[in-house]
Design a protein around this nucleic acid. Structure first.
Lengths: 196, 196
DNA sequence: CGACTGACAGATATTGAAATCTGTCAGTCG
DNA sequence: CGACTGACAGATTTCAATATCTGTCAGTCG
């Protein structure tokens, strides 16, 4: 509760804003709330973030980047079988998104606000993930286990085809019983489609 | 404008309700509007449909069934190559949905209201389409051109994997320039995954 | 008798006035 | 000087009063 009396930094604002968003949700959280939690006036917050939208984006970007970072480990395991890595990557993506939606509903709602605003942060996140996928596909092509004339296009198709298991607009379905079987069926289908 | 003075039937109510929904949209259209357009009291409408939701569902069901019916022609062309039929079916589905969203925005919005209500009409529509797909897959398996241990599961996976091109939650993207290339890439991927 | 009406109760939507919030900036303070 | 404050204008949200709508049903009419 008692705010540290250190100098105000962008990092500290992000930290506190994330907590405020988690508590109040994107609909109720105000810049004044954030300032109060920091023990400063709201004018000080505007010194570090030009608008409320920019603050919301920065918090969500950090939150999304934590997912990207954890997946990049799998994508970069150069030694392992590309097909196994691809399956693990999709499984990890699905698991991560499902947890974000289930365990952190307010930040997930904030993420959906960004989608509604067509924020560049969302595009960047998708681009990040697609680049990771492209790496795995390319690796598979080089080893002769995958067939793809244009790995970036193929990666995008893989991402699109699995949207049901990572796109926020399907979040409601991720708790449904049959969803894991559906996931397996789609992954099986696209992996088969990728094999050389 | 001048309402026919025939007896009031469910069919006539549906006809007029569709027109009222098209004009006012699901947010503004009221049962009173429908009754006025029919030249009767709103009590008479309730004689044929128990609730406003039931009326909305019936109109949307008719509207969705027109799509299903046009696709079932392709699914049932027993003579043709299953792969070509599958590609044509997906193309026709994408085209139909895109036109519904673009040319009939108010009825499309009504459809999205039903989705929000978890209406059985939507489930039935998806089940209809999946059954058509299952038929094509099964046909391909029998001819030895497709590989599938469980055609119904595979059909569902095909439907899920192509969601970006028929699920209403993506309607905004259907006017974007790159969408046709994305569609081709996904269809290519899943068709390859289906081949024997 | 059976299709239809219209008044009605409770639920929902609309409206406009008051409260709060966003973003700015002149001024304070160390 | 530069980080911070707090009063301010305009935009947005809230809230309560008001109007409209949904769904029912006793009663009318052919």
């Amino acid at each position: 509760m008692a705010p540290t009396s250190e100098t105000l930094t962008a990092a500290r604002i992000l930290e506190v804003t994330e907590e405020v968003l988690r508590r109040h949700g994107p609909a109720k959280a105000t810049v004044v709330d954030v300032a109060r939690a920091l023990g400063v006036s709201h004018g000080s917050v505007y010194r570090h973030f030009r608008t409320k939208a920019a603050l919301r984006e920065a918090v969500t970007e950090r939150w999304l980047d934590r997912t990207s970072a954890s997946l990049s480990g799998i994508a970069a395991e150069g030694g392992r079988d590309p097909e196994a890595r691809l399956r693990d990557w999709f499984t990890a993506l699905f698991t991560a998104k499902r947890h974000k939606a289930g365990d952190d509903p307010e930040l997930f709602a904030t993420y959906m606000v960004l989608i509604g605003e067509n924020s560049a942060v969302v595009d960047r996140h998708i681009a990040d993930l697609t680049i990771q996928l492209t790496g795995i596909v390319q690796d598979g092509v080089e080893r002769g286990v995958f067939a793809s004339a244009a790995p970036a296009t193929t990666a995008r198709a893989l991402f699109d085809a699995t949207g049901r298991f990572h796109d926020p607009c399907y979040a409601r379905d991720w708790e449904q019983p049959g969803i894991d079987a559906e996931f397996e069926a789609v992954v099986e289908l696209v992996v088969r489609g990728l094999r050389a």
